[in-house]
Nucleic acid binder design. Structure first.
Lengths: 332, 332
DNA sequence: CTGTTAGCGCTTTCAG
DNA sequence: CTGAAAGCGCTAACAG
């Protein structure tokens, strides 16, 4: 194991100089920098993470805490989010790890805090009043949430601006003359935001309950085709189900009225792109959003003790109208 | 931050004594042990991971390196494997993290090796002659592979015993009188093992190419129902596709001959259980297998310098016959 | 712009 | 059975 002492000797400088060319925390002449760098190269020196952390260097590692990583119905969103964070963090010169947590056992969270080897943590899939936020906040560990939940104190997060997202979708439909809109989602309640926007636009909403799977959407389509409904457009909050729904007509010859408009809200840009049925969407730039979350995290870690300012970032996404069933104006 | 010094003072013992009650590496009288323990309790002392690693304590952390965590078609297997490892490792008193790696960029792997903060690494989804194995082996970092690949040297792994798995499935079918069997898988080649077992049983195999998705299986069923085939049984290597295939008949009224036997090989026990169509399977105890992998990893880390013995563990799984289409004997 | 040095908190000899 | 003390490799004052 070569240490920074070996490198220093090899380069003919002091040990601290080596540290400083590595951290860039103080000016170094080009000459010595070059010598040190080549010495590092030659010796195959690898910085020792534990030592650096112990000595007070900020841990160049961010931890993603994701519950239900594998239990949620398969949707591509989670993957895009993780990928985005990983890349965002990496671009800032940090690395990230995923810290698996049991869903209903905080001992894992505890352990992470104890071990204290990560510079900060990114939370995903937060539950209502998620206890982890409280723990992290109490321990004064830098964290940012990808998403939001109400906990009674302020914290850093980046999230989709659902207000704007819903507005965009409903306004679009409204401008096409739609007054009664179906909402594809799991469960029977209507998101408050959606409801209030609809009411301000004087539009009526009906719930179309479905699981977020290709098959769920397919079955929904089948059910609808056999029923009498009087909404003229659909807004979907489920990505996988939307694809199943939209493809039901083209692939399995389920008869869905051609003039039924369909706008997906929680769907990745490229996911919509790849789907055979052309689904309109208020694009969810999950990857980019997560990437910015990663960068924000690093920024916060680096700003360190200077007082963690609470930052928020909201993402909307453009309305991408891909035509097909979604372009139809109301005829009936 | 309370340190072991604080604890020592509180308990009225030396610092090293605290360390030793924690590690159990030397005999401690019951009295002092109790005093120390309660001092730890009182002070809320948390051991500092970085310091412990730096001082030469073995890192109580194992790293899972999983490529393609999110790009592979959604199957429940990966999730079960990760969960199993996490739990297995945890039971041994270690913790695990997932180290995201880009698919075709070894810099992530490198970084992990450099930082050198994890006691060992578990590799999943290894490719043919996976470079990571070489890196890990060169660096003499303890690792075990969940799965197998040929790399030219011996290493620790736990894997399914496909030989036995294939044997079980084909023998079962053979005993029912089946002589020509379809094989659901991606791609057109037949696994060598499967082929040789079939030939020793004098059975003929035909490939049924499908993507490993519910829909892939569904479409396969549709295609088959419209074609003339003369195999009387199917062995499937794809979990998601198998479910789609089997449910095609019950849910979407695709006509599949009732006497067509179906045995799934890469399907979780509970996955088969939950599927509506009762699919026979040589159960893949992915969770349990992964759990044992995690334990093996810890064992190897702990055995430490004593020379890393190469261990292998093979899992088969029982044939679970759930009836329905799979119980049919050959009639035609 | 560079070197010296005192720790970070823990593990582990060595010496009772 | 228990203590004292020497580092592990690095960071960040402090001192030029």
């Amino acid at each position: 194991m070569t240490t920074r002492a070996d490198v220093a000797k090899l380069a003919g400088v002091s040990e601290s100089t080596v540290s400083y060319v590595l951290s860039g925390k103080r000016p170094i002449s080009e000459k010595t920098r070059a010598r040190v760098l080549s010495a590092i190269e030659q010796s195959g020196y690898k910085s020792n993470y534990a030592a650096s952390v112990l000595a007070g260097g900020s841990p160049r590692l961010v931890t993603m805490m994701i519950s239900n990583l594998f239990t949620t119905p398969a949707s591509r969103i989670n993957g895009a989010l993780v990928d985005g964070i990983v890349d965002g963090v990496k671009e800032s010169g940090f690395h990230s790890v995923i810290w698996p947590v049991s869903n209903d056992d905080d001992s894992d969270v505890d352990l992470l805090l104890k071990s204290n080897f990560s510079g900060g943590v990114i939370l995903m899939n937060v539950k209502e009043n998620d206890q982890r936020l409280h723990l992290l906040n109490d321990q004064k560990i830098p964290f940012v949430v990808l998403g939001r939940t109400e906990v009674g104190f302020d914290y850093n997060y980046v999230d989709r601006d659902f207000d704007a997202v819903f507005s965009k979708a409903l306004s679009e439909l409204n401008s096409f003359g739609h007054r009664h809109v179906g909402v594809i989602k799991s469960g029977k309640d209507i998101p408050v935001l959606l409801k209030s926007i609809a009411s301000s636009l004087k539009m009526k909403l009906s719930i179309l309950d479905s699981s977020n799977t290709h098959q769920g959407g397919y079955e929904l389509a089948k059910k609808l085709s056999a029923s009498d409904f009087d909404y003229t457009a659909i807004v979907s909050l489920l990505d996988a189900a939307t694809i199943g729904f939209a493809e039901a007509s083209s692939k399995y010859s389920i008869r869905i009225p051609e003039d039924l408009s369909l706008i997906a809200l929680n769907m990745l840009e490229d996911q919509a792109e790849k789907s055979e049925a052309k689904i309109s969407t208020v694009a969810f730039e999950a990857y980019a959003m997560a990437e910015s979350c990663g960068k924000m995290m690093v920024e916060i870690i680096e700003s360190g003790l200077k007082g963690a300012s609470k930052k928020h970032e909201l993402w909307t996404g453009e309305l991408v109208n891909r035509g097909s069933i979604s372009q139809a104006k109301v005829k009936r």
